[in-house]
Protein backbone atom coordinates (compact mmCIF):
# COMPACT_ATOMS: atom_id res chain seq x y z
CA UNK A 1 0.00 0.00 0.00
CA UNK A 2 1.10 3.55 -0.66
CA UNK A 3 1.30 6.10 2.12
CA UNK A 4 -2.07 7.63 1.29
CA UNK A 5 -4.58 4.90 2.19
CA UNK A 6 -7.77 6.97 1.97
CA UNK A 7 -9.83 5.39 -0.80
CA UNK A 8 -11.07 7.25 -3.83
CA UNK A 9 -12.48 6.28 -7.21
CA UNK A 10 -11.98 8.13 -10.45
CA UNK A 11 -14.83 7.10 -12.68
CA UNK A 12 -16.29 9.29 -15.41
CA UNK A 13 -19.83 8.73 -14.21
CA UNK A 14 -22.25 11.20 -12.68
CA UNK A 15 -24.12 10.43 -9.43
CA UNK A 16 -27.36 10.50 -11.47
CA UNK A 17 -26.01 7.87 -13.85
CA UNK A 18 -25.09 5.65 -10.95
CA UNK A 19 -28.55 5.90 -9.37
CA UNK A 20 -30.60 5.36 -12.57
CA UNK A 21 -32.29 2.01 -13.03
CA UNK A 22 -32.10 1.06 -9.38
CA UNK A 23 -35.78 1.73 -8.70
CA UNK A 24 -37.58 4.29 -6.59
CA UNK A 25 -36.04 5.36 -3.32
CA UNK A 26 -37.50 4.72 0.15
CA UNK A 27 -39.21 1.41 -0.73
CA UNK A 28 -36.37 -0.89 0.21
CA UNK A 29 -37.71 -1.85 3.61
CA UNK A 30 -41.10 -3.19 2.45
CA UNK A 31 -39.79 -6.59 1.35
CA UNK A 32 -37.65 -6.95 4.49
CA UNK A 33 -40.57 -5.96 6.71
CA UNK A 34 -43.06 -8.31 5.00
CA UNK A 35 -40.63 -11.20 5.48
CA UNK A 36 -40.58 -10.47 9.25
CA UNK A 37 -44.36 -10.07 9.50
CA UNK A 38 -44.97 -13.43 7.81
CA UNK A 39 -42.30 -15.09 9.98
CA UNK A 40 -44.00 -13.88 13.17
CA UNK A 41 -47.38 -15.15 11.88
CA UNK A 42 -45.78 -18.48 11.02
CA UNK A 43 -44.63 -19.11 14.61
CA UNK A 44 -48.12 -20.05 15.92
CA UNK A 45 -49.31 -21.34 12.52
CA UNK A 46 -46.45 -23.82 12.12
CA UNK A 47 -47.00 -25.11 15.68
CA UNK A 48 -50.67 -25.61 14.76
CA UNK A 49 -49.56 -27.43 11.59
CA UNK A 50 -47.22 -29.72 13.55
CA UNK A 51 -50.04 -30.63 15.97
CA UNK A 52 -52.40 -31.25 13.02
CA UNK A 53 -49.88 -33.60 11.43
CA UNK A 54 -49.64 -35.56 14.69
CA UNK A 55 -53.45 -35.76 14.91
CA UNK A 56 -53.78 -36.86 11.27
CA UNK A 57 -50.87 -39.32 11.30
CA UNK A 58 -52.10 -42.51 9.60
CA UNK A 59 -55.59 -41.04 9.24
CA UNK A 60 -57.97 -42.52 6.67
CA UNK A 61 -59.78 -40.33 4.14
CA UNK A 62 -62.90 -39.97 6.28
CA UNK A 63 -60.90 -38.67 9.27
CA UNK A 64 -58.99 -36.21 7.07
CA UNK A 65 -62.21 -34.95 5.44
CA UNK A 66 -63.87 -34.57 8.84
CA UNK A 67 -60.86 -32.60 10.14
CA UNK A 68 -60.93 -30.14 7.23
CA UNK A 69 -64.72 -29.86 7.39
CA UNK A 70 -64.23 -28.20 10.77
CA UNK A 71 -64.25 -24.44 9.91
CA UNK A 72 -61.42 -23.58 12.34
CA UNK A 73 -59.14 -26.13 10.77
CA UNK A 74 -59.92 -25.00 7.22
CA UNK A 75 -59.35 -21.34 8.16
CA UNK A 76 -56.08 -22.08 9.97
CA UNK A 77 -54.84 -24.21 7.06
CA UNK A 78 -55.72 -21.44 4.58
CA UNK A 79 -53.89 -18.90 6.77
CA UNK A 80 -50.92 -21.25 6.96
CA UNK A 81 -50.89 -21.74 3.16
CA UNK A 82 -51.11 -18.00 2.43
CA UNK A 83 -48.51 -16.93 4.98
CA UNK A 84 -46.12 -19.81 4.35
CA UNK A 85 -46.05 -19.51 0.56
CA UNK A 86 -45.60 -15.73 0.63
CA UNK A 87 -42.74 -16.18 3.13
CA UNK A 88 -41.27 -18.84 0.82
CA UNK A 89 -41.58 -16.56 -2.21
CA UNK A 90 -39.72 -13.73 -0.47
CA UNK A 91 -37.07 -16.04 0.98
CA UNK A 92 -36.35 -17.80 -2.31
CA UNK A 93 -36.21 -14.45 -4.11
CA UNK A 94 -33.48 -13.24 -1.74
CA UNK A 95 -31.52 -16.48 -2.14
CA UNK A 96 -31.75 -16.34 -5.96
CA UNK A 97 -30.78 -12.66 -6.07
CA UNK A 98 -27.80 -13.40 -3.83
CA UNK A 99 -26.40 -16.35 -5.74
CA UNK A 100 -27.46 -16.03 -9.39
CA UNK A 101 -25.31 -13.32 -10.86
CA UNK A 102 -26.21 -13.37 -14.54
CA UNK A 103 -29.22 -11.14 -15.16
CA UNK A 104 -31.10 -13.23 -17.73
CA UNK A 105 -30.65 -16.42 -15.77
CA UNK A 106 -31.68 -14.66 -12.56
CA UNK A 107 -34.86 -13.22 -14.09
CA UNK A 108 -35.80 -16.56 -15.65
CA UNK A 109 -35.27 -18.42 -12.38
CA UNK A 110 -37.25 -15.82 -10.41
CA UNK A 111 -40.18 -16.17 -12.82
CA UNK A 112 -40.10 -19.98 -12.72
CA UNK A 113 -39.96 -19.99 -8.90
CA UNK A 114 -42.73 -17.41 -8.64
CA UNK A 115 -44.96 -19.43 -10.96
CA UNK A 116 -44.19 -22.69 -9.17
CA UNK A 117 -44.85 -21.27 -5.72
CA UNK A 118 -48.19 -19.77 -6.84
CA UNK A 119 -49.14 -23.09 -8.42
CA UNK A 120 -48.41 -25.00 -5.21
CA UNK A 121 -50.16 -22.41 -3.03
CA UNK A 122 -53.34 -22.48 -5.14
CA UNK A 123 -53.33 -26.29 -5.39
CA UNK A 124 -53.12 -26.49 -1.58
CA UNK A 125 -55.77 -23.81 -0.97
CA UNK A 126 -58.27 -25.24 -3.48
CA UNK A 127 -57.80 -28.71 -1.95
CA UNK A 128 -58.50 -27.40 1.56
CA UNK A 129 -61.57 -25.53 0.30
CA UNK A 130 -62.87 -28.61 -1.51
CA UNK A 131 -62.48 -30.69 1.65
CA UNK A 132 -64.08 -27.93 3.73
CA UNK A 133 -67.18 -27.66 1.54
CA UNK A 134 -67.77 -31.28 0.58
Amino acid sequence: MSKDTSPSVHIMRSPLGRARGLGAAKHGAAHWWAERVTSVALLPLSLYFVVSVLILKGADHAAMAAYMAEPWNAVLFLLLIGTMFSHILMGLQVVIEDYVREEGKRLALLLVVKGGVWFLALAAAVSVLKLAFS
Binding site: H61, M64, A65, M68, F77, M84, F85, I88, G91, L92, V95, V117, L120, A123, A124, V126, S127, V128, K130, L131
Partner: peptide, 19 residues
Amino acid sequence: GVALSGGTILLVAWLVAAA
Protein backbone atom coordinates in the same frame (compact mmCIF):
# COMPACT_ATOMS: atom_id res chain seq x y z
CA GLY B 1 -35.35 -22.55 4.27
CA VAL B 2 -34.76 -23.73 0.70
CA ALA B 3 -35.23 -27.39 1.73
CA LEU B 4 -38.53 -26.60 3.47
CA SER B 5 -39.69 -24.73 0.35
CA GLY B 6 -39.11 -27.91 -1.65
CA GLY B 7 -40.70 -29.93 1.16
CA THR B 8 -43.99 -28.06 0.73
CA ILE B 9 -44.49 -30.27 -2.35
CA LEU B 10 -45.16 -33.07 0.17
CA LEU B 11 -47.77 -30.97 1.96
CA VAL B 12 -49.43 -30.06 -1.35
CA ALA B 13 -49.40 -33.73 -2.48
CA TRP B 14 -51.03 -34.69 0.84
CA LEU B 15 -53.78 -32.06 0.54
CA VAL B 16 -54.45 -32.61 -3.18
CA ALA B 17 -54.67 -36.38 -2.63
CA ALA B 18 -57.12 -35.83 0.22
CA ALA B 19 -59.25 -33.60 -2.01
